[in-house]
Simulated scan of single mutants.
Amino acid sequence: MAKIILITGASRGFGKIWAKALLERGDKVAATARKLDDLADLVAQYGDAVLPIQLDVNDRAACFEAVNKATEYFGRIDVLINNAGFGLFGAIEETTEQQARAQMETNFFGLLWVTQAVVPIMRAQQSGHIIQVSSFLGLVTLPVLGLYNASKYAVNGLSETLATEVKSFGIHVSLIEPNGFSTDWSGASAFQTEPNEVYAPIKKAFADGATPDTWGKPEATAAAVLQLIDSPNPPLHFLLGKIAYPGVKQVYADRLAEFEEWKDVSVDAHGH
């Protein structure tokens, strides 16, 4: 049976790749983008199997309208893929208030609004799968991506909580946590802070640490995402790419060791 999938940020990158993979195998997709023209190729190729929806996820009312439109058109929503977002590059000190708020508005609040809109639909169905496109930077951090890291940590905290709240309604929640991939996330879609030269050495070390092998091939993720969608018992945390796992494993090992080192002090602070 064909699945009905709502994908935000389907104009390019992961969103476009996954939408095509789903449509190619016979699923139906409600695809959102800021500009409908960016979805014209999907409509031309897949016709009525695609519902193009213009959406700025920063507009909460529009998020609810988009979810309702998709539900009315297809009759239900089996899977939500919350993919809309962008990267902000720069040191925390360099970041303006407007840049910080914009990063959180799209990456966190936009995801929250679409999630809030879809939960009642899936709850009424007593089934559904909410897939939040986070990052392995929601589990660990890298320099010069402070606000992006923070937005993804927020997404992870929200989604872990959501999973416990909606499980009894038959709704699964998964966090897709990719390492770096060669999408335009770090290119045309990215925003940069105004540089302060004191951070130049840190930025250079960060840039020099990347090799061509660091960046995964976006097209290679499609099969993994289809497998995630088809799983009867999908994971809450789903790493994508070969860099993410060893990176997260090392950070968590170091974190546990630090907790252990300070354990006695921490316990004494309880006061009993």
Score class of each variant (00 low, 15 high):
Leu239His: 01
Thr141Pro: 04
Ala205Arg: 15
Gln54Pro: 02
Leu158Cys: 04
Ala163Glu: 04
Glu24Arg: 05
Leu139Gly: 00
Gln116Val: 11
Pro235Lys: 07
Gln250Phe: 12
Pro143Lys: 05
Ala117Phe: 02
Leu55Trp: 00
Leu36Arg: 11
Gly9Val: 09
Val43Thr: 15
Phe89Tyr: 12
Leu39Met: 13
Cys63Asp: 02
His272Gln: 01
Val140Cys: 14
Val79Ile: 15
Glu65Cys: 00
Lys242Gln: 13
Gly157Val: 06
Gly85Val: 06
Asn107Lys: 04
Asn156Arg: 13
Ala84Tyr: 03
Phe64Asp: 07
Asp38Ala: 15
Tyr73Asp: 05
Val114Asn: 02
Ala10Val: 09
Leu36Thr: 13
Lys249Trp: 00
Val50Phe: 02
Val57Arg: 06
Glu165Ile: 06
Ile202Arg: 08
Leu111Phe: 03
Gly187Gln: 07
Val225Leu: 15
Gly180Cys: 05
Ile4Gly: 00
Leu145Asp: 05
Arg123Pro: 09
Thr71Ile: 05
Thr193Lys: 03
Thr96Arg: 05
Ser186Asn: 00
Glu72Ala: 13
Leu226Trp: 11
Pro201Glu: 10
Leu39Lys: 13
Asn58Pro: 00
Ser186Glu: 00
Ala19Val: 11
Ala62Ser: 14
Trp215Glu: 00
Gly47Val: 07
Leu162Met: 04
Pro143Asn: 08
Ala244Gly: 06
Arg123Trp: 09
Gly216Asn: 01
Thr96Glu: 04
His270Gln: 08
Asn233Ser: 14
Ala62Gly: 06
Arg12Ser: 14
Ile130Thr: 12
Gly146Cys: 04
Gly87Met: 12
Val119Cys: 07
Val67Met: 05
Gln98Asn: 11
Gln116Ser: 10
Leu158Pro: 03
Asp56Ile: 06
Ser151Gly: 14
Phe89Ile: 09
Glu177Ser: 10
Leu23Tyr: 06
Tyr153Asp: 02
Ile92Met: 08
Val29His: 09
Ala91Gln: 09
Tyr73Cys: 08
Gly128Ala: 11
Ala66His: 09
Pro234Ala: 14
Ile202Asn: 02
Ala222Lys: 02
Asp37Val: 15
Thr221Arg: 01
Gly157Asn: 02
Thr95Ala: 06
Phe89Ala: 04
Glu177Asp: 13
Ser134Ala: 13
Asp78Arg: 04
Thr96Tyr: 08
Thr183Cys: 11
Asp41Gln: 14
Ala220Arg: 06
Trp113Phe: 15
Arg255Phe: 13
Ile5Arg: 01
Arg25Val: 12
Leu111Ile: 00
Tyr148Ile: 07
Gln125Cys: 12
Phe89Thr: 07
Ile121His: 07
Thr96Leu: 10
Gly170Cys: 07
Ile131Gly: 09
Ala40Leu: 03
Asp27Ile: 10
Pro232Trp: 10
Arg255Cys: 02
Leu137Asp: 03
Glu197Ile: 09
Leu139Val: 01
Thr161Leu: 11
Ala19Leu: 07
Arg25Lys: 14
Gly26Trp: 09
Pro52Cys: 04
Glu219Ala: 14
Arg123His: 13
Gly26Tyr: 08
Glu261Lys: 14
Val173Ile: 05
Ala150Ile: 12
Ala33Met: 14
Asp27Glu: 13
Ala257Phe: 11
Val133Arg: 01
Gln126Val: 06
Ala188Pro: 07
Ser231Phe: 08
Tyr245Gly: 03
Val265His: 09
Ala207Phe: 10
